[in-house]
């Protein structure tokens, strides 16, 4: 049986690298005595596959992993067992059984929403700056990925910008492409905001708010979009 989970990884864990997160999850599976399936061979390992990498420095509100189990379990039981042993800053929110042929998370997730918390800048000013940003014909930043310093245009990959105000802090939600048509990293988005006139010291937190499977104009979570 294959199971897909949605989990929360809090700000306390934002400095974990992807591999650290995977180890942490594997160890939790062992502590919870989940009947996980093991790969064949000399060095058997748990068949756990994580969704798109949560970059170091970022925490995640809705992250995902798939796991292969050696026997059938109720997803509710699975969630309960795992939450009982996970460190306090990480929680499995829900889980569901998926078809064994369901394509991997890494392949289906093609959009994500990043939230930037801005403090000390009036809401109206931020709205103005974002509107100005969206009117530009292209949004060029220096790539932060493998091809460092190559200038890339993020325009085609920026799907939505939403600005929400709270008392003294504002959230900018940026829904952007992962992979195609252009792969956008959170640090590139940050560069974009800095260029739009928001200052580094006013950005007090950044997290990934959602991962999506985007089909046309539909945004579905990986739990909603299964065969």
């Amino acid at each position: 049986m294959k199971i897909r989970c949605e989990y929360y990884a809090g700000p306390e864990l934002k400095f974990l690298a992807n591999l650290d997160m995977m180890h942490m999850m594997e160890r939790a599976l062992r502590r919870a005595e989940i009947p996980y399936a093991l790969s064949e061979g000399f060095n058997p390992h748990i068949k756990l596959s994580m969704g798109t990498v949560l970059p170091v420095g970022l925490w995640g509100q809705n992250e995902y992993f798939d796991l292969e189990l050696a026997k059938r379990v109720a997803p509710e039981w699975f969630v309960m067992q795992l939450n009982a042993v996970l460190p306090p800053y990480i929680r499995v929110k829900q889980a569901r059984e998926i078809d064994s042929h369901e394509p991997a998370l890494m392949k289906t997730i093609n959009a994500a929403c990043y939230a930037f918390i801005i403090q000390g800048v009036p809401l109206t000013e931020i709205i103005q700056r974002m509107e100005h940003l969206m009117q530009k014909p292209n949004l060029e930043v220096k790539s932060r990925g493998k091809k460092k310093d190559v200038v890339k245009d993020l325009k085609a990959g920026i799907y939505k910008i939403e600005v929400k105000g709270q008392e003294d802090s504002v959230i900018i939600n940026l829904t952007v492409a992962i992979g195609e048509p252009v792969n956008i990293r959170f640090d590139e988005l940050k560069d974009l905001l800095l260029e739009a006139g928001i200052e580094e010291r006013n950005i007090t937190d950044i997290y990934r708010q959602a991962n999506y499977v985007k089909i046309m104009e539909d945004y579905m979570t990986p739990l909603e979009k299964v065969i």
Partner: peptide, 21 residues
């Protein structure tokens, strides 16, 4: 630490504590 310092260092998890147990 979490806001201004740890994002600038290599392997920040060295300095955050909060491990299991």
């Amino acid at each position: 630490l979490f806001r201004d310092i740890l994002p600038l260092v290599a392997k920040p998890v060295r300095y955050t504590g909060n491990e299991l147990n």
